[in-house]
Computed example of a mutant assay.
Amino acid sequence: MALLDAAREVRERAYAPYSGFKVGAAVRGASGRIYHGCNVENVAYPEGTCAEAGAIALMVASGETDLIEVAVIADSSGPVPPCGGCRQKLAEFGRADTPVLLATLGGATLATTIGELLPGRFDISHLSGTE
């Protein structure tokens, strides 16, 4: 539960003055270290940063590029999946079978994987043979 707790804690620091929709995310690197991020909105809405992207950026900035677990939490009626762009970002650094836990502040959860969130993902294999 430490991963979900980290996501819950960082969610409180989200900067969401326009939507009011705060999201927290945490990823666990292959080292076991937890990296977290929150959404950061911008007055040029919707030009902001997603929580998942922030967590991945912190992981990469800290020297890791392999994630082995993901947790995302929001105050919503049901678990909120990552946006399409963040699904691709998660797929860049995690495997298809990497577990993803989506949760609400009310306690509802949905366990899934990166592969289930992004079937048929675009990856390095698609670049082979290009000129």
Rank of each mutant, 00 (worst) to 15 (best):
R95L: 12
S77Y: 06
F21Q: 11
M1F: 14
A44W: 05
P81H: 03
L4I: 12
G48F: 08
R121K: 13
G29H: 00
E41I: 06
A16R: 08
I114M: 10
A96I: 09
L118I: 02
E9S: 15
R121T: 06
N42A: 05
G24L: 05
M1Q: 13
K89D: 13
K89C: 06
G120Y: 09
Y45T: 00
P79H: 09
V80L: 11
T49D: 03
V60C: 05
T98R: 09
L117W: 07
G29A: 08
A111H: 15
A96K: 08
L90V: 15
E116P: 03
V100D: 02
R121P: 02
P81F: 06
E64S: 05
V100R: 01
V70I: 02
L3A: 12
D97E: 14
A51G: 03
A71Q: 10
G85V: 14
T112R: 12
T113Y: 09
A7E: 01
P99V: 13
A111L: 15
A96D: 13
F93S: 06
A71N: 08
A103C: 15
A74L: 04
T98W: 10
A53G: 09
G37D: 04
A74G: 03
P81V: 09
P17A: 05
I114H: 03
A71W: 09
S128Q: 04
V23H: 05
I56V: 03
E92S: 12
M1E: 14
L127A: 08
S128C: 04
G32I: 02
A2S: 14
G20P: 10
P82Y: 00
A55S: 00
G37T: 03
A71M: 01
V27P: 01
A55P: 07
I114G: 02
A2K: 11
P82L: 07
A26N: 10
